[in-house]
């Protein structure tokens, strides 16, 4: 196996150009190390941890600019993430063990493109943008378009994620991440649901509602039909129940050793409802009316 520790993004890109699909990029390593041991050892391992300037959490562009080498623990212990991006913060709190959170990186969680990747549904509802570097130049795109399938991203074999921009939601909005798993954070999510609710000035209707679903489709997805049912309307118990059902029917879960597809659909409905109830209460100070 060939091994490189590029010192710059340009150097990493030229290695990717040279090795293409035969190369594997490694950052924290919590997933890649397991693959190396139990699946195939790549012909070439490109360790990007020594590239300078990819590990920062800074305010900018109306939100937080996050370097891809920032660890999950660094996000979890960051005051701005906690206060301004609660859905992302809650997903970091429910992300495996402290040992893993100290090692795993945000960029790794994104590029791994696992449908159940803990931070992905939150980043979808927060409408994060990702900066992608290619030999031909840089591209900024909504994170949603990055995910093509399980383990597949629009980076292909020759791109590198260089920044995650997470805009701050309006001050009045609230967001949350709800995870269903048997053994809490240590377990891979059977279902993860991120929600964001922005009430209007009177706190009587929702100006904006966003719902992101994890582990119930080939990629993390937005439940746009469910969102549309609620946007501009008061969040009543009946409306929320209807939207939660819509979210469940927008999901396309599989059956595996963790749970059946049918069970996952039920859980999408339950977590969507709970998430909307909670964020509505937090955003308006009011319980949901019948």
């Amino acid at each position: 196996m060939d091994y490189f520790e590029p010192k710059s993004v340009a150097e990493a890109l030229s290695l990717l150009a040279r090795y293409g699909a035969r190369a594997k990029v490694i950052a924290g390593g919590t997933d890649v190390m397991v693959d190396i041991k139990y699946k195939d050892e790549p012909e070439c391992l490109i360790n990007i941890k020594r590239i300078g300037g990819l590990r920062y959490i800074e305010e900018g562009n109306g939100g937080l600019r996050i370097g891809p080498l920032v660890t999950i623990r660094e996000l979890e212990t960051n005051r701005l993430v906690r206060e301004r991006l609660p859905a992302l913060w809650e997903s970091c709190r429910q992300f495996a063990s402290l040992q893993i959170r100290n090692t795993a990186t945000l960029g790794g969680n994104i590029c791994r493109a696992s449908p159940s990747g803990e931070t992905l549904a939150p980043l979808l509802v927060l409408e994060a943008k990702v900066k992608l570097a290619f030999a031909e130049g840089e591209k900024v795109e909504p994170i949603e378009s990055l995910f093509l399938g399980p383990g597949k991203t629009s980076l292909g074999f020759n791109g590198l994620l260089t920044e995650i921009d997470v805009p701050y939601p309006e001050r009045a909005s609230r967001s949350a991440y709800l995870k269903h798993a048997v053994r809490g954070p240590m377990d891979i999510a059977m279902v993860g649901v991120a929600v964001l609710v922005t009430p209007d000035a009177n706190r009587s209707a929702a100006n904006d509602v966003r719902i992101g679903l994890g582990a119930v489709a080939p990629t993390p997805v937005r439940a746009r039909a469910a969102e549309a049912l609620l946007r501009g309307k008061p969040l009543t118990a009946a409306a929320v129940q209807q939207a939660a059902r819509a979210a469940a029917s927008e999901s396309a879960p599989i059956s595996d050793q963790r749970s059946s597809a049918e069970y996952r659909s039920w859980i999408v409905e339950v977590l969507t409802r709970r998430g909307l109830e909670r964020t509505w209460r937090e955003a308006t100070g009011k319980e949901m009316s019948g």
Binding site: S97, Q99, N102, T103
Partner: peptide, 9 residues
Amino acid sequence: KPVNSCVVL
């Protein structure tokens, strides 16, 4: 920082 040394290079 505590880490799992089995998944650290």
